[in-house]
Write a protein that binds this DNA or RNA. Structure first.
Lengths: 154, 154
DNA sequence: CTGAAATAGTCAGTGCCCTGATTAATTGAC
DNA sequence: GTCAATTAATCAGGGCACTGACTATTTCAG
């Protein structure tokens, strides 16, 4: 009986949290547009004309995944993709009118969904929750993308 | 400029948290066995002889996903699968010796990984983090599996 | 005992997520 | 100016996660 209590494993809880969010999104926000797709559209509302790689960086998706997400959004006419005349490697991205409308519509619904999602916590707890979540995620991400490796010491 | 700040969206943070965990698991625990696979093995250490559906329930995986995970573990010889003679619909699951050894080995490593993952938080913050995470995940899950719908009132 | 409902598992289809290998374009050392 | 290194994107391949439709078995009402 060397079994472990998974409710003390942050990774397990993170997975369950994300699954729960997925289901809630599906029922309260959209069955067509997923949360990562919304994140991509949102990045392009904030900074129109970004290229694929940079959008991925903004929303936290690797090069392969961002390519798939963008391909789906393009296929649905929510997003346009054009070669950068200045740099033939890049594709510049932008939202179509439909994409913009969709983003606006979903923004309202995500706000409602977030309220339901966080309802079990008090206002102060919600603040703490965000703080802890961000700190853990940022630190773990930093482990993977070690940024400027400060000149070797010792 | 109606863009939203995704760092105030719990779902977005949950996704980033899970991704960060995935990467950390890969580098600190195993490149062969994934976190959900470990969760399944762990459930069978705690309760040997469970059937597929129940294991899925224990670790939070739907019937399709649990089938895939079990198929991979079986293919690798970590797990056995046998028809329940009492109920021809069920498959009873159990760990092989190799599966048991693997579980034991990974248990040590997951403990180390959890420490690294939670390192940015103080001991008290870690306790709070677990509490908040569990409450939000449980509540959101409850929305989807509405349990015993208490007799309609009013 | 028989036929309908419930239950366990499979299968097809969609989408997210990663790695490693490859292709095309640009940049930079010489 | 040429060739090597870098960079943006694609592709192949493995794994997780869900839904809806299907099969096989069991259960239960009658």
């Amino acid at each position: 009986m060397a079994a472990v209590d998974l409710t003390t494993h942050p990774g397990h809880l993170a997975r369950r949290l994300q699954q729960a969010h997925y289901l809630l999104w599906n029922s309260m926000v959209s069955e067509e547009i997923t949360s990562p797709q919304f994140a991509v559209m949102n990045a392009l509302v904030a900074e129109p004309g970004l290229d694929q790689r940079t959008v991925g960086e903004r929303v936290g998706l690797d090069r392969s995944t961002i390519a798939e997400v963008i391909s789906r959004l393009t296929r649905r006419g929510l997003l346009t993709k054009a070669r950068d005349p200045q740099d033939g490697r890049r594709f510049l991205l932008g939202l179509t009118d439909d994409g913009l409308r969709t983003h606006r519509r979903l923004t309202v619904r995500t706000a409602r969904m977030n309220q339901v999602f966080l309802a079990p916590l008090s206002a102060e707890e919600q603040t703490v929750f965000f703080d802890l979540l961000r700190r853990v995620a940022d630190a773990a991400e930093a482990l993977r993308h070690p940024a400027e490796p400060v000149a070797a010491q010792g």
